[in-house]
Simulated scan of single mutants.
Amino acid sequence: MYDERLAAATKPFNARGAKVIRCKQCQIAEQYCICEHQPAGRSDFAVLLLVSDAEILKPSNTGRLILDTVEEGYAFPWHRTEPNKELLALLNDKTYQPVVIFPEDYVDDKARLIQPQQFQPPGGKKLLFIFLDGSWREARRMFRKSPYLDGYPVCSIKPETLSSYMMRKSEHEDHLATAEVASIVFEQFGAAYTSKVLAQWFSVFRESYMLSKTRFSSDLSRPALNNFIGLIKNANSV
């Protein structure tokens, strides 16, 4: 998706920090690349990312971190008028139960709202969590302008802490990065290990990303990365 969007660009894409030589995969400065530490996904659910056009090329995007930590994941660029045919086929696959992740305050039909602890997919279907990956303004537009999502249940989360996302500033301090939202969702649906792996992988990404920013004081000992390595080693030894 990244390569396709880059090929379609009519002018060079210059994100903040464009002078940094980045790893193509993790989008972190090459000397701090984290690819060798990417976790092996363990999950009995699937994830679908709908990614806004503005988000696809941003190196600070955290949605792709979710796909690093789950066994089955999909990502599609969001189009208002012409949704991807493969996307629609996935949503219509009877083996999945799609659940849209979005704040309840913006859901007009409250009957769509579900509680994670009480929700059981019918017929043993696999949960397919749908995350709208974009700025808060973009995500609201995606939710309103995607009629193919209208019939699916919606899960809303209420974070207890403010976002620890530092790479970009949101207009609202309590808005979370997409990876932070997913970590909370996974925990609420009983996937504690995947939630913890994603939360720590997000911390590794944030820590490593910030190392190339000279205006921030960074810890070159990389404690978040070391904690993550310890988590994975402990899990593999069990």
Rank of each mutant, 00 (worst) to 15 (best):
H175C: 08
A224F: 05
V99D: 02
S60P: 05
A199L: 11
V181C: 04
C155E: 02
L65P: 09
S218V: 02
D105T: 15
H175P: 00
R137T: 15
I66M: 04
R22A: 04
P98Q: 04
L88I: 07
L57M: 10
E55T: 02
L48V: 15
Y209G: 00
K24S: 14
D133T: 12
Y106W: 02
T178W: 01
R16H: 14
A179C: 14
S218G: 06
L113R: 03
L65K: 08
A139S: 13
H172N: 06
Y74S: 12
F143S: 03
D93S: 07
D108R: 13
F202D: 11
E173Y: 09
P83K: 13
E207T: 06
N236T: 14
V70G: 09
P83L: 06
F45L: 03
R5W: 03
T214M: 12
S164N: 12
R168I: 10
T161M: 13
T62Q: 09
K19G: 07
S221C: 10
K213F: 12
Y152P: 05
A139Y: 01
F216P: 06
F228T: 05
L132N: 01
S221L: 05
Q115G: 04
S217D: 13
P116N: 09
L49Q: 03
P77N: 11
I232S: 09
L67H: 07
P39M: 09
R80G: 00
I232M: 11
F143M: 01
K145G: 02
L231T: 05
L90F: 02
L162M: 07
Y165R: 02
D44K: 14
I157D: 04
F228M: 09
K126I: 15
V70T: 10
P153F: 03
T69N: 15
T62V: 11
Q200N: 15
L176Y: 01
N226K: 13
G17K: 00
F45I: 15
A111V: 08
I101D: 02
